[in-house]
């Protein structure tokens, strides 16, 4: 996975509503049609880091199968960050696209 994109993907996943770690990993993997494989070795530290920055908040809830689970939700600050990161990402992607494929640039 591209360096630095995991944070953005986590935030994007949480736009749909609170989720716990496993759901987030699944959502990323399924959403990318299994192209992106989430390394759990970096997922949990990333979650912790985002929480420390105040972009997501954690709370203890009950999972679908009635177990205590740690859920994460997006904070307003997180939403702002997501928007900023997404637009920067799109800029980068567009820029790279322009270099790799000048003609198809508009579909980028």
């Amino acid at each position: 996975m591209v360096q630095g994109t995991l944070d953005m993907l986590i935030l994007q996943t949480l736009v749909l509503g609170p989720a716990h770690g496993q759901t987030i990993a699944h959502a990323i993997e399924r959403g990318s049609e299994e192209v992106l494989q989430v390394e759990h070795g970096s997922l949990y530290p990333a979650l912790h880091r985002l929480q420390n920055r105040g972009w997501i908040a954690a709370f203890w809830g009950t999972s679908e199968n009635n177990r205590k689970a740690k859920y994460y939700r997006l904070t307003p600050e997180g939403k702002r960050q997501l928007a900023a990161q997404t637009s920067r990402w799109e800029q980068v992607v567009r820029a790279i696209g322009r270099i790799l494929n000048p003609i198809a640039e508009s579909q980028g």
């Binding site: 770690g21 496993q22 999972s63 205590k68 740690k70």
Partner: peptide, 11 residues
């Protein structure tokens, strides 16, 4: 953190 990881394993 430990609890969270245990939860992941179980699920």
């Amino acid at each position: 953190q430990r609890e969270e990881l245990d939860f992941y394993l179980d699920v």
